Simulated scan of single mutants.
Amino acid sequence: MVYEPRKLLLRALAGERTERPPIWLMRQAGRYLPEYLVTRAAAGGMLELCNSPDHAVEVTLQPIRRFGFDAAILFADLPQIAAALGQVLEYKEGDGPVLSPPIRSAADVARLTLTWLHQKLAPIYETVRRLTVALPPNVALIGYAGAPWTVATYMVEGRGGGATDHATIKRWALSDPEEFQPLIDLLTEAITQFLARQIESGAEAIQLFESSAGILPEPFFQRWCVQPVAAIVSALRAKYPDTPIIAFPRGAGLLYVGYAEATGVNCVGLDSTVPLAWAADRIQGALGCCVQGSLDNQLLAAGGAAMYAETDRILAALGRGPFIFNLGHGILKTTRPEHVQSLVRHIKSQ
């Protein structure tokens, strides 16, 4: 007898067309929620919040309590793995995460080490373990990491993706790919180990965020985005064949199809620019791959008729499944919680 997972999200990731689309939203635990701001202040800041299992569990649960999403995503921050490899991570008001010293040469890469990776990331594994007990039985737990290229952009630029034009990393990766390769190799190994520990701690699915996929020319997209993620998927699948993997190559455009096929992920997250009929035909149809997305986060911030109209268009195009409803990028801090509640009710009424 074939085992059919009960949780709606896991059924969609297994390739089923579910009775309604499961819904969760990127950055669903965040600054748009007043209770999150209270918890973050109590923790003493972003870094303390991420490294405190008590507080990280609380903020992960807050949107589940308020909105009843079908999945919770582990609350942590993408550059924590860079800090675990040896960079110094700080959060500066109005500037987001800052990593120092930036990685700019082969000598800088050589100073990074896997030695203390799991020791420094131990609070995250403890958060996962606690969430497996704290979450409602119908809610799936998603672990996550940044993909190697996206984490590398933080490490080389020294700050988050939205605060840079990526000129430094692009010059290095495009002009001297052989010198740049060891950084990607190190990150591929570190992220594989990081995700494996999350699965062992209780994560039921994994999402890889490739937020900076869209900045690379096609040959370099293949080398720095596709190949490392394919290696991570292969390694995880060899040990944990039943754990589904979602990847979100934001901005990949026409390269989405080749990315989904070459990486072998169970599901690809679509950004808001991807034509829906094309995705339904080329990804859901031809590849039989689950898709996730793709409401524009500005429409969620606006709410009302425009949000509902676009939501219905997405459902009509992708609802034949397998499909998970989400945004094309994370919830904006200006979003009113009642708009999120309205969206969840609308999806659950399908």
Rank of each mutant, 00 (worst) to 15 (best):
I283K: 12
F67W: 04
K348T: 02
G160D: 11
G158H: 07
L135K: 03
A279Q: 07
K170I: 12
G161T: 03
Q292M: 13
Y144C: 13
T18Y: 05
C267Y: 11
I142F: 01
G96D: 09
L216V: 09
I199K: 08
Q28M: 05
V233K: 06
D312A: 09
L121E: 00
D242K: 14
A190T: 01
G15E: 05
S105Y: 01
L208Y: 08
E157M: 10
R282C: 08
I73D: 00
A76F: 07
L186P: 02
G269C: 11
I81M: 07
I232Y: 02
I184Q: 12
T153A: 14
E16S: 12
A43F: 00
E48T: 03
L186S: 01
F325H: 15
L85T: 03
T273Y: 11
W224P: 07
A173Q: 06
P249F: 13
T127V: 13
L10W: 00
P34F: 06
A82W: 07
G15R: 02
G328I: 10
L216G: 09
W278G: 10
I169S: 15
Y36G: 01
D185E: 07
P22A: 11
Q80I: 14
G86S: 12
P22C: 11
L47A: 08
R31Y: 14
P337R: 11
E16C: 08
A41G: 15
A72N: 08
T127L: 13
A231E: 04
E310M: 03
S349Q: 15
R313A: 06
P275T: 13
Q198F: 00
G285H: 10
L131W: 06
R313W: 09
R11C: 01
L187E: 05
H118L: 07
F325V: 09
P275N: 14
F209S: 04
P79I: 10
A238H: 10
Q298L: 14
Q292W: 06
A134C: 03
A147D: 03
G264L: 01
A72R: 07
I246T: 02
V156I: 14
M1K: 09
G202N: 10
E16V: 03
V151K: 05
V229T: 02
V268T: 01
A305M: 08
L89W: 06
I324F: 05
R104D: 03
D77M: 05
F180Q: 08
S175T: 14
Y240G: 00
L9D: 09
P182Q: 14
K333V: 13
G328V: 10
I124C: 00
T243S: 01
Q198C: 09
L343Y: 10
A260E: 06
Q350R: 15
K170Y: 08
W149I: 13
P244L: 11
R345Y: 04
L318M: 11
R104Q: 07
T60M: 02
W24N: 08
W24G: 09
G158E: 11
L186G: 00
P275M: 14
T164E: 09
I103Y: 06
E93G: 04
R313I: 04
Y240W: 07
I191C: 00
P322V: 00
I23F: 08
G264Q: 05
C290Y: 12
P228H: 06
A235R: 15
P217G: 14
K239R: 01
R237K: 15
P337N: 11
E178Q: 15
C267D: 10
A56M: 01
I81W: 02
E4N: 13
S52E: 13
R130W: 12
L114S: 00
A316E: 15
V38L: 08
I199Q: 05
Y3H: 03
G30R: 11
I314C: 12
P322N: 00
